[in-house]
Write a protein that binds this DNA or RNA. Structure first.
Lengths: 205, 205
DNA sequence: GTCTATAACTCGATAGAC
DNA sequence: GTCTATCGAGTTATAGAC
């Protein structure tokens, strides 16, 4: 009789615990002991399942990113018109981060610690294709639908407005004095506010 | 004869070294040995001047923020008109980060690790006053100079666009394929591009 | 104040019983 | 597969000579 894999297998318990600890503390800050406690097992078992701390970390990292990027990338490189693509992108991105609020900081740290390793693991050699967006912006500018705009600056602006509030959440919460719940509502609003802000900037003078 | 304090006193050497190591590696990633090497002294002296690693770190943190915030805050809470305030804010902010490119990531990590401690040390109880900006936006909207806009969303947008590119620099560099020098030029451009992007969004439909 | 030497401790990893 | 016990490398911190 084949053993049915359950969500509470030891391996799953370890992964769940490791996800939590690595994502909140980073690689250097995480402790194997803490992961073991969180999983309700002992340190030795961690090494039995995943040879080393580094290997366990890499597992979490790759798994996390692969749950995050594909859909966002698909929207970004699609041929949806700008007025649909930008809202779709923001909405998908913000939803993913609302569901996994610690990932942005985690990723930002990895990006800065081991950039080449990181992108090799995530993109596997080929990077996101921005050429479609560039063509769209050119075309829209030619038709006078928007003013001419640097694609690079635009990409930076969109990503910044979507991601940064999550990375700096504790600061914004203290400046404007809001709870976690209110923060979530604010981010929900931003799924619409960011696109309309951007479209206004693109059309404006 | 009174000893003149020079920039190369042992204490200064330690602070310079600690700044570099802590800012690039964070508290957990930093090694006292590395700081000692960087300063050209031995580990014992670090403890002689600053009792512990934590104390040394706190010194760096507070010093860093106090070199960073006052001018930015002054602009933010000034009564400059919007068309001047926003460019001044972006310009000052980006200049500071160009001069200290690792600070944004450093700060973002501190914000997330010990938010209450952090803001107590930095703001000492009172937080930045956003009321002036709120009034300015209201007034401008009443005079039909800009469309009505949520101050909170606007503040998030401005800060995000200024800070996030520094935090995610390695990613942007790889996506658009640029060197450190080109990145710097891009950020110089943004000192103008962000304000014009924002003003266009504020005026637009 | 500055150094060398080393104590005290943290933490990842392994050995070996069950 | 899972546990207890422990090793050993790496680090912070201190003792004590100069």
């Amino acid at each position: 009789m084949v053993k049915i894999k359950t969500d509470t297998s030891t391996e799953e318990k370890i992964l769940t615990a490791a996800r939590k600890v690595f994502i909140t503390n980073g690689l250097a800050g995480a402790r194997m002991q803490e992961i073991a406690n969180e999983a309700g097992i002992n340190k030795a078992l961690l090494h039995y399942y995943f040879r080393s701390k580094d290997k366990l970390f890499e597992t979490i990292l790759v798994e996390t990113m692969q749950s995050f990027l594909p859909r966002v990338n698909a929207i970004f490189t699609s041929d949806l018109p700008l007025e649909e693509k930008i809202p779709a992108f923001c909405s998908e991105y913000i939803d993913k981060m609302l569901a996994n609020p610690f990932i942005p900081l985690f990723v930002v740290n990895e990006i800065n610690n081991q950039p080449d390793d990181f992108f090799k693991k995530i993109w596997g050699g080929k990077k996101p294709d921005v050429s479609i967006l560039v063509k769209q912006l050119d075309a829209a500018a030619n038709e006078k639908k928007i003013r001419p705009v640097s694609p690079v600056q635009l990409i930076m602006n969109i990503m910044s407005m979507c991601v940064f509030p999550f990375v700096a959440k504790p600061m914004f919460q203290r400046v404007i004095g809001i709870s976690d719940k209110q923060f979530r509502l604010l981010m929900e609003e931003r799924k619409k506010d960011i696109p309309s802000f951007i479209m206004a900037a693109l059309r404006g003078s």
